[in-house]
């Protein structure tokens, strides 16, 4: 199961300055673990002390916020695209027209 992960600028220091990395993982949780294996240190930045994604971080699977899916248990399929996007205070991310 290979998915493409888009990495935000502040975290690219963990990915050799790459904006996209390919990663393995059947769920978001597994993906986060796999990211940590490939890019040590990144998970502590993505997740809080309880291991949950930080509240000012949005994670999308093919443009859908995982909060509207199954959170970290969201199932990933081959060729899915996962975006990690810092929330902009001001709620930019999900403004509807």
């Amino acid at each position: 199961m290979t998915v493409k992960v888009l990495i935000p600028t502040p975290l690219q220091k963990f990915t050799n300055n790459l904006a996209t990395v390919e990663c393995e993982g059947g769920t978001i949780q597994a993906l986060l673990d796999s990211l940590e294996t490939n890019c040590p240190g990144i998970k502590a930045r993505l997740c809080d002390d309880n291991g949950n994604p930080r509240r000012f971080l949005n994670i999308y699977v093919n443009s859908e916020d995982i909060r509207f899916l199954d959170g970290v248990e969201t199932i990933l399929n081959d060729k899915d695209e996962v975006s990690i996007v810092p929330a902009v205070a001001g709620g930019l991310i999900t403004v509807n027209r």
Binding site: R55, N58, R67, A87, A89, G90, T94, R97
Partner: peptide, 13 residues
Amino acid sequence: AKSIAIGNPADGI
């Protein structure tokens, strides 16, 4: 009320 329709309000807390 589209100008205030923000579903994920980051300053909400």
